[in-house]
Design a protein around this nucleic acid. Structure first.
Lengths: 232, 232
DNA sequence: GCGACAAAATCGTCAGACAAGTATACTCGT
DNA sequence: ACGAGTATACTTGTCTGACGATTTTGTCGC
């Protein structure tokens, strides 16, 4: 994109914009897993000072989107099977609480419904370029809306961090390409229905199943890739 | 204290030690809620450069131990009723998942048992100076051990953040002073027993009750303080 | 070919400086 | 005397530049 004209810096500041931009590049897979991100490189690419770049990398590291230890350069993490299981266990913990809470008052978040519409639209033109990315976006938006509707700042904060890593793995494995997006849409619809019916147990059950499916897709994709690059 | 002789910096680095020190001062209530923490003040108190102090404050802000908006001085947050409810809702979400998981395999974490012993010891000499602080420490350690035993890095990370804020409020309200610590000890024991019995439902029930009690103590303490400083 | 030493790259921390925004205090008009 | 607008001081955001420490890489000798 247009990299040199002054950025449309949304919020207040340089640091924020830099962070958002690098974050996007990571979760969208533009920066491959295992790739090294030095402070100098970031500073150079964006024409900012090294301390600014440093702060950016530190923030991303805190969110799990980068790994680095003292005096070593940051790298985009390549999540293994244990990571994915751990990630989905944490995710399930948070989202279970969310859907149960919503179901208790039969509150169907309008934002989630909107995300569903976007997902259906994206599912329509699977051939189109960038359709994959917008599917992932819509999927993330759906789950995000579910948690946001609970109204708990801290739950949302935790979920945001987790979804960041989820987004990262999805971008890396492109698991959505190997499955029919309409299945996901239908599972989402079922969850919304259970919430609307005021049935917390059912909502949790369906959610757990949905997440299990997603985790399974990621794991099988992981194994496939591993077996391909085995002859080293 | 001795500010000029090089610090006995425990871990790797200056930043880390600074962060730990300031964090402790905040959660222990040495820095009162509402108190302002300028970068310059921290830099001066610890004889470090301002960027170092800045990074420290940013980290603490990310953890919810400080609040600040752009171009405004960081302050130690004074949590209101909504905050406490939100905090305990999130806490319950995480710890429920933990005890349920442990109970499913009837795994009683040795660390938690050890924390219980420490708590009993601290409960013995309520009169002693600093006994209150060690009670809180032991309490935190117990719940921390529970979650750590699950073995989920991400769940532990989330819990760590939440416990930071819990620690903060406990230090501020000193709620433990108004209650018999042995009650807390017994509730902990009950939870451990349910885990050992392999009864996830019971463990979750007892945990929820335990957290409800704790939240209630904090809220009543909050109301008491508010009514005292009402005539403004 | 392998291990040890030297060189390069990178990070951690610091000092100093300027711009920009916020909050406070002061002045002026009514 | 009091309120409103402005001016000043304080604090933060960002940059430039630099030095020591540590990790990594590359080379040399055995």
């Amino acid at each position: 994109m247009d990299g040199q004209t002054s950025f449309p810096l949304g919020p207040s500041s340089l640091t924020e914009a830099l962070y958002e931009s690098v974050r996007k590049r990571i979760v969208n897979g533009e920066i491959a897993p295992g790739e090294k991100l030095t402070e100098i490189r970031i500073a150079g690419e964006y024409s900012v000072a090294r301390p600014t770049a440093k702060a950016c990398l530190e923030r991303l590291t805190a969110l799990g989107l980068l790994r680095r230890s003292t005096h070593k350069t940051a790298v985009v993490p390549k999540l293994d099977e244990d990571d994915i299981r751990d990630l989905y266990f944490s995710r399930e913990t948070v989202e279970r609480a969310a859907v149960a809470t919503l179901a208790r008052t039969a509150t169907v978040p309008p934002e989630a419904v909107r995300a569903q519409a976007a997902m259906k639209a994206a599912a329509g033109d699977t051939a189109a370029n960038g359709a994959f990315a917008s599917q992932v976006e819509a999927d993330i938006a759906f789950h995000s809306a579910l948690v946001a509707a609970v109204g708990s700042r801290r739950l949302s904060r935790m979920h945001e961090v987790i979804l960041g890593e989820v987004h990262l793995t999805m971008g890396q494995f492109q698991a959505h390409r190997t499955t029919h997006p309409m299945n996901v849409v239908h599972e989402h619809d079922d969850i919304l229905k259970a919430i609307g019916d005021g049935d917390p147990e059912q909502a949790q059950r369906l959610l757990a199943h949905h997440l299990d499916q997603a985790q399974g897709r990621l794991l099988s994709q992981l194994h496939r890739e591993r077996s391909e690059e085995a002859p080293a």
